[in-house]
């Protein structure tokens, strides 16, 4: 187990190094410099600015320093926001984004599993088709359209929820729903197909033959086993939630990391773009690691030695 985790961590570090490097060089080759403005700056000030942000050094020095700083969890100052460092921006924004993300994950898991279970139990009946149409619809609608429509209908037209901001529980409902729509659909589909597979197993037939009720079969035997693919979806789920948050937070005016990131793209605030990209990558890679470990813990069929897909 330890060896396995060690190996996974090594890969993650390598991936991370790749991301940091790619980000660094992409940003370095980005055309224009971050201090360009309509009114040209005096050379002296531009030179000072460059020195302040370490841009006057040769690239390998900058790269080395950047790697060291990242290792020390220091993402540097923001080009645009003088009063904040990228670290502060991440710390402040992520608090909000994490709450929104967890709410969405909760909704996605609850609704997704329920829909998927219903669909599987009522296989090829109208409930199945109904649930799957909802699920496919959830996948088919891009999140910015979903969020705009939800906001338009429930806040602007019906006035049930506030339009935007992140203040009370009511403010959180629409963004959490909008963010959850795509993963809900994915989870519903995953649950359905893995439930169907589990349901066709002999032990379920045995249980049914023994006279167990459908509900106890579902709860005790099926759902637990059917959850494995859902667990493995947690990595991509984190990615969906994070990228979804860019759009949702912008539309709902939520002061989270996602909206800061989108703004920093617009501002070409390179240190923020780099820092947040690296931060998100770390979170995503940790999720993947967590899933791998969870998978091993939950599924007795998987031995720690081998990789899943090797035949």
């Amino acid at each position: 187990m330890l060896r396995y985790i060690g190996k996974r961590v090594l890969y993650i570090l390598l991936s991370l190094w790749l991301i940091v490097t790619a980000t660094f060089f992409l940003m370095r080759f980005a055309p224009g410099n971050p201090f360009t403005s309509e009114k040209r700056l005096p050379a002296q000030i531009e030179a000072n600015l460059k020195a302040h942000y370490g841009l006057d050094q040769p690239w390998y020095v900058q790269y080395g320093e950047y790697l060291v700083k990242i290792a020390q969890w220091d993402f540097g100052p923001s080009f645009k926001y003088k009063s904040q460092t990228v670290n502060q921006l991440i710390a402040d924004g992520f608090q909000v984004s994490a709450v929104l993300g967890l709410m969405a994950i909760f909704i996605a898991l609850a609704v997704g599993v329920i829909l998927g279970t219903i669909a599987a139990l009522k296989h090829n009946r109208w409930q199945d088709y109904g649930a799957m149409i909802i699920a496919v619809a959830g996948i088919s609608v891009p999140s910015f359209i979903m969020a705009t429509v939800l906001q338009y209908v429930f806040a602007l037209q019906l006035g049930i929820f506030p339009v935007a901001r992140w203040e009370s529980f009511m403010h959180t409902v629409l963004p959490a729903l909008a963010l959850a729509s795509t993963p809900t659909a994915f989870i519903a589909r995953l649950t359905r197909s893995s439930m169907l597979e589990v349901l066709s197993n002999d032990y379920i037939k045995t249980a049914r033959a023994k006279g167990l009720s459908q509900s106890s079969i579902t709860v005790r035997h099926t759902i637990r086993n059917a959850m494995l693919p859902v667990v493995s979806y947690m990595g991509p789920l984190a990615a969906t939630i994070i990228t979804g948050s860019f759009v949702i937070e912008k539309i709902f005016g939520i002061p989270g990391l996602g909206s800061s990131f989108v703004l920093s793209i617009g501002n070409r605030d390179y240190t923020v773009i780099m820092g947040v990209t690296v931060f998100y990558s770390i979170i995503l890679l940790l999720c993947v690691l967590l899933v791998d470990i969870l998978y091993v813990l939950i599924d007795p069929r998987i031995k720690l030695t081998g990789r899943k897909e090797s035949a």
Partner: peptide, 24 residues
């Protein structure tokens, strides 16, 4: 496959964003 694994860890949409920002 190790090379692919490492690359796979790179978040796809973030990379897409970086590409569009930098390469136009």
């Amino acid at each position: 496959m190790r090379a692919a694994d490492i690359l796979y860890g790179v978040p796809y949409l973030l990379l897409a964003i970086l590409f569009m920002v930098v390469l136009g």
